[in-house]
Amino acid sequence: MDDPTTSNVERWISMALRIGVWSSAALMIAGLLAVWVSGSASLPPSENLSPRALLRMLFSSSVDGVTLIFSGLVVLMLTPFLRVLTAAIGFLAERDLKFAFVSLAVLSMLLGELFFFLR
C-alpha cells in the first residue's frame, strides 16, 4: 500500500498552528527579555489582571515587556480559533460540506463563548 499523502487542508492547518505557536513564543520571549533587560518585573497588581485592564494595555501607546508577553498570550489563546477557521476553509475548498459545517459549528461555539465571557 502507498504512503498516505498529506492533503491541502492538513498542510494549511499545520501551517496555521506553526504560525500561531511560534509567533506567540517569539512575542513572549521578546517580552521576557525586555523585562530582564529593564531589570524589573513589575507585574500589574492582581486587581489589574481583569481582562479590560490587560486588553487596555495592548492598545496603549507605550510597548513594554509585559505588553509584549500579554500580546503573545493573546496570540496563543487565539491559535486554536485560527486552526478551526482554517479547517472550515480547507474543508470548503475540498467541497467536504459536512466537515466544513462541523468546523463552523465548533468555531461558532468558541466565538459565542468568547463574546459571552468578555462582553
Binding site: 492582581s46 489582571l49 481583569s50 481582562p51 490587560l54 508577553i69 498570550l73 468578555l118
Partner: peptide, 8 residues
C-alpha cells in the same frame, strides 16, 4: 481570563 486568573 475573564475571571482575572491569567497572570502574564
Amino acid at each position: 481570563f475573564a475571571h482575572g486568573h491569567i497572570n502574564p
